[in-house]
């Protein structure tokens, strides 16, 4: 019997069966891998509504959007004034390096504010280095913060993990380990002060 085996035909059958079996195994893997992606209720929770009017002037609150922290700052006139005059200290003063730091509504005038309404800054609160939440150190200079910030501190954020610094428009300052400005996320105003994030 073994003399009469047509090996090439047998190999063809093995190959065909193996191929189809492989296709079936791949298809069977789809639901399993698919099940590990975000579930429908997780996706449904991907929008957050917030009333920025509830933030006191000069204050910062951290809210959640898709489980991620988001900074909302009510910037006073003084804070807005701190945005200007230190562009040479910034890695990306115009927020153009990557898509995540800019937005469609940015015009040449409001680019530096990085906000639809300059007084309310809304940014993703994760340090672009490795994701810690930076500390809010809004006032200028070392008066309130000691030597945790540089002498010419323009006011902004200081990341506790590896020392990245951001200015009051959340733009990263030179020599920080963080590569980019804090990211923006899509948001829009649905009223005077009510904002929908996501």
């Amino acid at each position: 019997m073994s003399e009469q085996v047509d090996q090439s035909k047998r190999n063809m059958l093995f190959g065909a069966a193996g191929l189809l079996g492989g296709v079936a195994a791949l298809a069977a893997a789809v639901p399993f891998v698919g099940s590990m992606l975000p579930a429908a209720d997780t996706l449904a929770a991907s929008k957050t509504e917030f009333d920025v009017g509830t933030v006191e002037s000069g204050q910062l609150v951290v809210i959640q959007w898709q489980g991620k922290p988001v900074f909302v700052v009510n910037r006073t006139k003084e804070l807005l004034a701190q945005i200007d005059g230190h562009d040479e200290m910034l890695k990306d003063p115009e927020s153009r390096e990557i898509e995540a730091v800019s937005a469609a509504w940015m015009t040449d005038e409001n680019r530096k504010y990085r906000a639809i309404k300059p007084e309310y800054l809304v940014v993703v609160a994760s340090c672009t280095h490795l994701g810690c939440i930076p500390m809010y150190k809004a006032t200028k200079g070392r008066k309130d913060w000691g030597d945790s910030v540089p002498e010419d501190w323009p006011g902004g954020w200081h990341c506790p993990c590896h020392g990245s610094l951001y200015d009051i428009s959340a733009r990263v300052i030179n020599d920080s380990p963080a590569p980019h400005n804090l990211h923006l996320m899509p948001y829009k105003y649905t009223g005077e002060t009510s904002v929908v994030i996501g």
Partner: peptide, 13 residues
């Protein structure tokens, strides 16, 4: 019930 309704392919698994 969440597995049955919300998780992708949860019903199948």
């Amino acid at each position: 019930e969440r597995i049955m309704r919300d998780v992708n392919f949860g019903w199948l698994i």
